[in-house]
Design a protein around this nucleic acid. Structure first.
Lengths: 338, 338
DNA sequence: ATGAAAGCGCTAACAT
DNA sequence: ATGTTAGCGCTTTCAT
């Protein structure tokens, strides 16, 4: 039995192919009786529309593109899961396309992807969300897109964000409330601007509590475990030593924990450590990490919904949504030593 | 400026569209002079072939599908990176499609994907690699596919594997050489048969060294961190207590480490712990994990190469390749306590 | 509410 | 070595 095409269905149902097309696409103006006949024929023949033909004729591919610039592994996977969760029920498939966000060919590469595969829409994750040049290129190709956690030119697209700055502010206040004042901070990759907001939150909380963060309490990593470990060694040899370290993501915080173990520093008795993201590693290490749960999957889900909504009616205004992050208290933080 | 199509290129170059097609597809029988003219026109117009049209006419989509059944997060991501590394230079795009391998609709779901999107070929990862029903469904739809780490019906497709059993055997021997005899084992998800081979390796090594593993030295998790922790608590209350635990993956081994910390058991003085996979967590926890490095990315790369080779000439015989795993010794293992 | 006809942009088969 | 023609299977007009 060879694959059924739209003509077979039309013939079996005794209607024109246009009617079949109407039924398949849920278009109006089909009498229920007709619709049933067609649906029957479809079921009987196990008919599946050919995506390529559809795409060619309709100028629509039912393909979404996820562009990511390799922050941490779990971040990517969480995003991907969230995007897929929305894609599946809506019958979109997902093309994943990692890109090096400092590659000179980035724009060219993505243009090729978008134009070749006739992708219907694109989801951008940090740090791509803030790549202005890329945004303009996408605009120019008139590909709808949505951004996760952008910090710049928010009016350029629909987006989903979380309250990085506020959550970070709160976490810092929490540490201060535990009696800490020498609180170190390890920042993430400078290109990842949402992570930059975390530093702002820390700084604001310190100043609001009349603590002036010393320059040597601040270190900048690149979001990786190794950089966290490196920065920790640096911060922990400052005299007097910080009694708490707040890292801008969990992987770096895990690096701090390792460094503390290596230096024989007890957690949390001698040093409190806080992270950001609540990735699996946060509760897989010992002691388990006090951190901030970012609703990554939900952001991705929402973002994809916004994108698909936009595809359906291009007139709709660009919307945005904010999903709050939440402090999760575990064993890596405690009262400041005397 | 509207998007250029093949006719525009043909006109500008002063040739027929077929010649343009030949150049674009690197077909033979084009004189260098012609080719240059065409390439010039292509560059000048920034022409990009429309994938949908290509796919419809040529019955070829330049799309590969990655089907995965959610083992651990890093496994998936490593596989994905490996697959993409091969896709990119060959100009294939990748559709990722997670599936619940015990879902009753699995076959139906995947059939729909394959038939709708006209995917050229499929990459299967464990535990899907051993889903015989799925393999037959793919065969029937005549979609080329390749498997990563299959253990069953290997003649059904090209595949890439590693020496799970031998590596596991070696690791066990290594523990025995360190003076351990009461060695516990935590198995992975029973549906993941490659992981089953790890148990076989352990068992064989024990027996070859005249040690009969007691029934209560063996526990079965589901490859997750939590299951590792649970199994560890179970194994560690056996009397006399095992002096080493070998877990079938790193996430479970990390769970064992946490359990040991909680119970005040010193690692490695009182308990040696070994894992499998060398995922990032292996060196991010404390103490760092002795484990087996599986060449996951390379397996995925190779698998994708085999698949693409197969797509190019369907006559080629199904090939297979084996990439060895390697023991990585870190701090979580040491001599058995007296 | 339904249908007929004309493409969408490409490749395949067959000229030349 | 190059060109001509006829589809691929669908959606979009535009009739009816």
């Amino acid at each position: 039995m060879t694959k059924a095409i739209i003509d077979d269905v039309a013939e079996l149902a005794g209607v024109s192919i246009k009617t079949v097309s109407r039924v398949v696409n849920n278009e109006p103006n089909v009498r229920p009786a007709m619709r049933d006949k067609v649906l029957n024929a479809i079921a009987q023949l196990d008919y599946r529309p050919n995506m390529s033909a559809r795409s060619l004729a309709g100028n629509r591919s039912y393909l979404l593109g996820l562009l990511y610039g390799t922050p941490s592994a779990h971040y990517v996977l969480d995003i991907q899961e969230g995007v897929l969760a929305t894609c599946r029920p809506q019958r979109y498939e997902l093309i994943v396309h990692p890109c090096n966000h400092q590659d000179a060919n980035l724009i060219e590469d993505i243009s090729a992807l978008v134009q070749n595969s006739r992708i219907d829409g694109v989801i951008l994750t940090p740090p791509l969300s803030d790549n202005i040049e890329l945004l303009h290129a996408l605009k120019q190709m008139s590909v709808p897109f949505v951004r996760v956690a952008p910090t710049l030119n928010k009016e350029l697209s629909a987006y989903v964000e979380t309250n990085d700055r506020d959550a970070s502010y709160e976490m810092t206040c929490k540490l201060i409330a535990l009696g800490h004042s020498r609180i170190g901070f390890i920042g993430g990759h400078p290109d990842h601007r949402a992570v930059g907001l975390r530093f702002e939150g820390y700084q604001a909380a310190m100043l609001d509590n009349k603590i002036r963060p010393a320059a040597d309490w601040i270190a900048t990593g690149d979001s990786s475990f190794d950089s966290g470990e490196r920065c920790a060694h640096q911060l922990l040899q400052v005299e007097p030593r910080p009694t708490a370290i707040f890292a801008a993501n969990d992987e770096m915080a895990a690096g701090v924990i390792l460094a503390a173990h290596q230096m024989g520093i007890d957690i949390p008795a001698d040093l409190s450590i806080a992270g950001f993201d609540d990735t699996p590693v946060a509760h897989q290490i010992w002691p388990a990490l006090t951190t901030i749960r970012q609703p990554i999957q939900d952001m991705a889900k929402n973002a994809t919904e916004l994108l698909i909504k936009q595809l359906k009616k291009s007139t709709s205004p660009l919307s945005a949504s904010m999903l709050p992050s939440l402090i999760i208290t575990r064993e890596s933080t405690g009262r400041a030593p005397q």
